[in-house]
Design a protein around this nucleic acid. Structure first.
Length: 763
DNA sequence: GTAGGTACGCTTTTT
DNA sequence: GCGTACCTAC
C-alpha cells in the first residue's frame, strides 16, 4: 500500500493555487474514514498489519489542517523513527499540496530535545547541552563506578547501564528509585551510582538519550507554567506505534494531553495509532500495557479498528491470524483480506537437513525467482538474530546475488566517524570532556594512563574542563618532551580552527575548518598511513561525513542532527536482496519473505523463554506474526534438523510456531520433511523440554557430507583477479583452493578459487 | 605505549 | 568458531 512516489518538486502553480487532493477522504475505506474524521476526544486506532495505518495518520493530520481546526504548529505528531517522521512529513505535504512547515513532527527524542533546549535551566543544564552517544555513556559510567569502588569485572558497566536505562524508561530519576528497587545490581549500590552518574552529566552539561525524555517529563510535572504553555500550544496530538511507548513516553504524552476540562472543554484530542500484536520491544522498556489500558487512561476514549488488509494474500493473512490467536490478553482484531480474492500461494514450510542446506535452498529459490523477473529488492530474508545473516551472505556471495544487510553497523557508529565527530564536538564545545578524552590520544600523542590522570587531577583542582587543564599544564611546564610538543600542536590546531570559525560564521566555512582541523591534528593522516585494508574505506567515510556537514549551516546544527538521527541511506535504490532481523523488518513489506531458522531455541529464542516465560513466548510469537505479515505474495518458512551453533552440531526440533499455522494454508517441502514427521511423532529423546543450556551436543560425522577433496588452486599469490561482485583484487594468500583476496573496493575476503578468474582473461 | 596472547561470551537495539 | 577486550611482557 504505497501511494505514488512523491516527485521531488511540486508543479510550480501548486505553490500559488493551493491544490490539496480534494478527494482525500473518498480514498479511504469506512473504518479508515472514521479514524480520520473522529477529531474530538481521545481516539485509539488499532491498526493491524498492512491496514493503512500510515495513510490514516497522515490523512488525519492533513484533515485537521485543511478543515482549519488547527494551525500547523498546533499539532504535535510523534513517531519512533526518523524514517517514519520523514515519511509522514512528505505525505502530509503531498496532501496539502505544499511542503509542510512549522510542524511539531518528529521522534520522541527529537521533540524532547527541542523542548528541553528551551527549558534546560530547570534541570541544571544550559540550552547548549550535548547529547552523548553510547560510547561516551559507558566511558562516563566506568569513571563513576571506579570512584565508587565497584568491581567492573563482577558488575559489567553495560549491565549497570542497562539498569539505569530501564529506570529512565520508567521515568525514575535517582530520587524516585526506591531502595527496594535497588538490591539486585552492584551489591545495592546501583542507585548511588545512578545519582553520581547524573551529577557528572550535569557537570558536563550533557544528556544521554534517556535523559531527553526524563528531564523534560520532570519539567512538565513540576512546572505548571511550562506545562500550561504547551497545553495552549497543542490542540491535537498524534502518536504512531503507541504499543511501543515506554512509561516515560506515556507519562510525557499524558501530561501534554490531559488538560483541565474547565479551561479546555474539548478535552484531550489525542489520537494513538498502534497494534498490540506488533509489540516487540518490551526488552527495551516498551509497555504493551499502555495500549491495553488506553480506555482507562483517557476517559471517553473511542476505539476504531482497522482490519482490512490490502497488502497480503488470503493464505498469508489466515496463517498470521491463526498464529497470533494463540496469544492471550489481546485487544483483538482479525485481519480480513481487503480485496475480494481468496487466491494466493500457500505458505511453504521447508524442512532441511542442516543450516548449510537451508542457506543453499534459500539462495536457489531466490535465483529462480530472479530468473522469473522478480526484482531482488522485493525479496527479504528475515532472521531472529543478527549473526544468522552470515550464512546467507556467504551463500549470496557465491551465487553472485547482490544483497544488502539492513541495520548492521551504522554509519555514525563507525570508529572513524565517532572520532571525527569528537573532534567537531571539542571544536564546538571546548568543555566537552568526553569528546576530548576520546581524541586526545588519537592519533597517538603519547598520552597514556599517567598523563590522562594528570590532566584529570588538574581539571578537578582548577575546576576547568580537560582542554583547559591541558593548556595550563603546558604553560606551567608540567608536561614535558614529545608529549608536550604533541599536545601543544593539538591545542594550537583547535585554537586556529575556533578562530577561523568565529571570523566568518555561517558562510559554509565550517566545512573547510573541520577539514583543516582533521588534517592539522594528524587525524586524517593517521588513516592515510594505515596499511590495513579497511583504511581507504574509512577515509571515504570521512569524506562522506564532511559532505554531510556541508548540508548544514553550522557545526552545532550538524552535531544536533547526527546525535538524534543516527542513520545513513546508502545504496537504498539498487536492486538487492534484503537481509535483516525481524525487528528491523517491522513496517516494511516485500513480495517474497524468507523466514529461516524456525526451530525451538532459535525462534522462539531460548533466552527469551528462560527470562521472560510465557510473556516472552508471546512476544516471540508477535515477532513471528510481524515476520509473516511482511509478505505480500509468498512466505517461505524453513527449519533445519541439524544446526551448528558456535562450535558443535546439535539437532533441533521445529519451532512450535510452525505447528500453530493452519494446515490448509501450508505446504510442506524439503529434504528433511520425513525426518520432521518422525520428530513430531516421537517424543524428544532427552527429556520433555528443550533447554539449549543443558544441550547434549551430538557428534554427527555420519550426517556430514564427506569432506571435499582437497584441490590445489592454480592461482598464485600475487595474481590480480576479478570477482563478479567484488571487482578487482589481488590474491594475498592461498590455502588449498581457498584464496584470501584483497579487493580494491571490498577489502579482504576469503573465497573459493572457482569464484574468481585471473584479471584480463575473458571467460 | 604497543604488540601479542588469552579468556570470554554469544538476541533483539526505532533514538 | 570468531571477534573483542583486557592483561602482560617487552
Amino acid at each position: 500500500m504505497t501511494d505514488a512516489p512523491q516527485t521531488s518538486s511540486f508543479p510550480p502553480q501548486a505553490e500559488a493555487e493551493f491544490l490539496p487532493a480534494e478527494d482525500y477522504l473518498e480514498r479511504l475505506n469506512p473504518e479508515q474514514r472514521e479514524a480520520v474524521e473522529t477529531l474530538d476526544g481521545p481516539l485509539l486506532v488499532l491498526a493491524g498489519a498492512g491496514t493503512g495505518k500510515t495513510r490514516v495518520l497522515t490523512t488525519r493530520f492533513a484533515h485537521i489542517l485543511l478543515s482549519r481546526r488547527a494551525f500547523p504548529n498546533q499539532v504535535l505528531a510523534v513517531t519512533f523513527t526518523n524514517k517514519a517522521a520523514r515519511e509522514m512529513r512528505e505525505r502530509v505535504g503531498h496532501l496539502l499540496g505544499r511542503p509542510a512547515e512549522g510542524l511539531w513532527l518528529g521522534t520522541f527524542h527529537a521533540l524532547c530535545a527541542r523542548m528541553l533546549r528551551r527549558h534546560a535551566e530547570y534541570v541544571g543544564l544550559t540550552s547548549s547541552f550535548t547529547i552523548l552517544d553510547t560510547d561516551d555513556q559507558i566511558r562516563l559510567l566506568k569513571q563513576v563506578m571506579e570512584v565508587n569502588r565497584i568491581d567492573n569485572k563482577r558488575w559489567p558497566p553495560q549491565g549497570l547501564m542497562g539498569v539505569i536505562q530501564r529506570w529512565k524508561d520508567r521515568g525514575l530519576s535517582p530520587d524516585r528509585v526506591t531502595p527496594a528497587e535497588d538490591s539486585e545490581f552492584a551489591g545495592g549500590k546501583a542507585r548511588l551510582v545512578y545519582a553520581d552518574y547524573q551529577a557528572r552529566l550535569k557537570q558536563l552539561n550533557a544528556c544521554d538519550f534517556g535523559d531527553l525524555m526524563l528531564h523534560i517529563t520532570d519539567i512538565l510535572r513540576t512546572r505548571p507554567d511550562v506545562l500550561a504553555q504547551y497545553h495552549r500550544s497543542f490542540r491535537y496530538i498524534l502518536v504512531d506505534e503507541y504499543q511501543d511507548t515506554n512509561t516515560v513516553q506515556y507519562l510525557w504524552l499524558r501530561l501534554l494531553a490531559q488538560k483541565d476540562p474547565a479551561q479546555y472543554p474539548g478535552g484531550a484530542n489525542i489520537c494513538c495509532v498502534g497494534d498490540d500484536d506488533q509489540s516487540i520491544y518490551s526488552w527495551r522498556g516498551a509497555e504493551v500495557e499502555n495500549i491495553l489500558r488506553f480506555e482507562k487512561d483517557f476517559a471517553g476514549a473511542r476505539i476504531v479498528r482497522l482490519e482490512s488488509n490490502y497488502r497480503s494474500t488470503a493464505p498469508i493473512l489466515a496463517a498470521a491470524s491463526a498464529l497470533i490467536a494463540h496469544n492471550g490478553g489481546r485487544l483483538g482484531k482479525t485481519l480480513r483480506p481487503g480485496r475480494n480474492d481468496s487466491s494466493g500461494e500457500k505458505l511453504l514450510v521447508a524442512s532441511v537437513w542442516d543450516s548449510d542446506e537451508e542457506a543453499r535452498t534459500v539462495g536457489e529459490r531466490m535465483e529462480q525467482l530472479h530468473r522469473d523477473k522478480h526484482p531482488l529488492s522485493e525479496m527479504a530474508i528475515l532472521v531472529r538474530a543478527g549473526f544468522q545473516t552470515r550464512a546467507f551472505e556467504e551463500r549470496l556471495i557465491t551465487l553472485g546475488l547482490p544483497y544488502r544487510v539492513v541495520g548492521g553497523l551504522r554509519f555514525y557508529e563507525r570508529a572513524e566517524i565517532r572520532d571525527a565527530m569528537a573532534y567537531m564536538r571539542v571544536l564546538n564545545q571546548p568543555a566537552d570532556d568526553l569528546a576530548f578524552e576520546r581524541i586526545v590520544n588519537v592519533p597517538r600523542r603519547g598520552v597514556g594512563d599517567a598523563a590522562l590522570q594528570a590532566l584529570h587531577v588538574e581539571a578537578r583542582e582548577a575546576q576547568v574542563p580537560l582542554a583547559m587543564a591541558t593548556m595550563r599544564l603546558i604553560e606551567r611546564g608540567t608536561l614535558k618532551g614529545r608529549l608536550r610538543e604533541q599536545l601543544t600542536l593539538l591545542m594550537a590546531a583547535f585554537g586556529r580552527a575556533r578562530e577561523a570559525l568565529s571570523q566568518n560564521p555561517g558562510t559554509g566555512s565550517h566545512v573547510l575548518v573541520v577539514e583543516a582541523l582533521l588534517d592539522e591534528t594528524g587525524y586524517a593522516d593517521m588513516w592515510k598511513r594505515d596499511k590495513s585494508p579497511e583504511a581507504p574505506g574509512r577515509l571515504d567515510n570521512l569524506k562522506e561525513l564532511t559532505r554531510a556537514l556541508a548540508d548544514f549551516e553550522s557545526l552545532g546544527g550538524f552535531l544536533e542532527h547526527v546525535s538524534l538521527v543516527m542513520e545513513n541511506e546508502e545504496n537504498a535504490g539498487a536492486d538487492r536482496v534484503n537481509l535483516m532481523t525481524l525487528h528491523g523488518a517491522k513496517g516494511l513489506e516485500f513480495d517474497t519473505v524468507f523466514l529461516p531458522g524456525w526451530e525451538e531455541g532459535v525462534f522462539p529464542s531460548q533466552r527469551t523463554l528462560d527470562e521472560g516465560g510465557n510473556k516472552g513466548l508471546e512476544e516471540e510469537r508477535r515477532l513471528a506474526y510481524v515476520g509473516i505479515t511482511r509478505a505480500r505474495k509468498r512466505a517461505i518458512i524453513s527449519h533445519a534438523v541439524n544446526r551448528r551453533i558456535y562450535a558443535n552440531w546439535q539437532s533441533s526440533i521445529p519451532s512450535r510456531f510452525i505447528d500453530e499455522l493452519p494446515a490448509e494454508h501450508v505446504e510442506q517441502a524439503g529434504s528433511a520433511a520425513l525426518a520432521r514427521e518422525q520428530l513430531r511423532s516421537a517424543p524428544p529423546v532427552f527429556g520433555g523440554q528443550f533447554p539449549l543450556t543443558a544441550r547434549r551436543p551430538r557428534t554427527v560425522e555420519a550426517w556430514e557430507e564427506p569432506p571435499r577433496a582437497k584441490r590445489q588452486t592454480s592461482i598464485a599469490v600475487g595474481t590480480r583477479v576479478f570477482h563478479q561482485k567484488f571487482g578487482y583484487g589481488t590474491v594475498r594468500a592461498a590455502d588449498d583452493d581457498r584464496l584470501e583476496i584483497e579487493f580494491e573496493h571490498a577489502g579482504m575476503k576469503k573465497l573459493l578459487d572457482t569464484y574468481v578468474e585471473p584479471a584480463g582473461s575473458s571467460s
